[in-house]
Design a protein around this nucleic acid. Structure first.
Lengths: 151, 151
DNA sequence: TTAGCAACGATATATCATATCATCTGATGT
DNA sequence: ACATCAGATGATATGATATATCGTTGCTAA
């Protein structure tokens, strides 16, 4: 099983980034941080209702997800249309080269960072065709260590 | 601008693969082959109607897309939920290491093949965490050569 | 205090995809 | 030729994901 690191001084991180993290945005972010698996916007609607005993419209969830992804606090998994908290919030470096290992068995996700060497090689390969790479997100599907060990 | 190679002896290829390529499947495939940009299932519904002057239910389009992707004739782009003909049909080799260069300007897609060396390095990186990779599809977004040249 | 703006709510609708059962069609054995 | 069977397709319904738009709230700063 794979899960995110626990929440830490996120508010400070946001202040440093100049990000206005409202209570509701924090709530959504914390749900994602404490979830072992990625959640869809509608999953979040349900969890929010259960956890905070008040409903948030899915439209608002989407807006908040957009804000959080733009801020780099949350990633959208394109192969599953689900959302996950960034697990490298404590790092300073850019995460333009994130890579997600998605377990087909437990749905857990591990976020690792491509070595800059590898990242560069990939960009170079693409740019040999005259293509200018602006963004990339690699999602690998398979089976995580824990699930392999339990057969 | 980027586009697929023209259709060739697809029927022969399919026979060789033991694939039953019905007329309707051929029609869908040919629309994708002749499209300069990836199409959604609903795009295909519209194009089909215009081109063949008879409607095909979207449900059938989805079934045919499933068949074509399972057969390796068509790829689904996960970052855009659209479908594109495989541009390496004449090759014999496996395409498990395909990489898609998606132009944010013209929506064109170029399908290139990762060097097996690079492919291996990426897998190795993942597997160092104990993760067993089963499938991957790399989609890079950026700007293609033609769009770069026209500013 | 109030003008302005960002956040959020409410509602509608667009877009992407699957479930299920019915019907058609073409290959096969007799 | 006919029956039969399976795979392909049609028809209908519904589920899942996402965006558009306009109204309301609530903070903040002159």
């Amino acid at each position: 099983m794979i899960h995110s690191k626990p929440s830490k001084n996120i508010q400070k991180i946001c202040n440093a980034k100049g990000i206005s993290l409202t209570q509701k945005r924090q709530n959504i972010f914390h749900i994602l941080l404490s979830s072992k698996i990625p959640l869809s916007a509608y999953d979040l609607t349900d969890v929010y209702k259960n956890k905070f005993e008040t409903a948030m419209p899915t439209m608002s969830i989407y807006r908040i997800l957009e804000f959080l992804t733009a801020s780099g606090l949350v990633h959208k998994l394109e192969s599953t249309n689900k959302y996950i908290a960034c697990s490298h919030l404590q790092c300073d470096h850019e995460h333009s080269n994130a890579q997600f290992l998605i377990c087909n068995s437990c749905s857990g996700v591990e976020e690792i960072t491509l070595t800059s060497e590898l990242h560069k090689q990939i960009e170079t390969g693409a740019e040999q065709t005259g293509f200018k790479v602006e963004s990339l997100q690699f999602e690998l599907h398979g089976t995580c260590k824990a699930c392999l060990n339990t057969h």
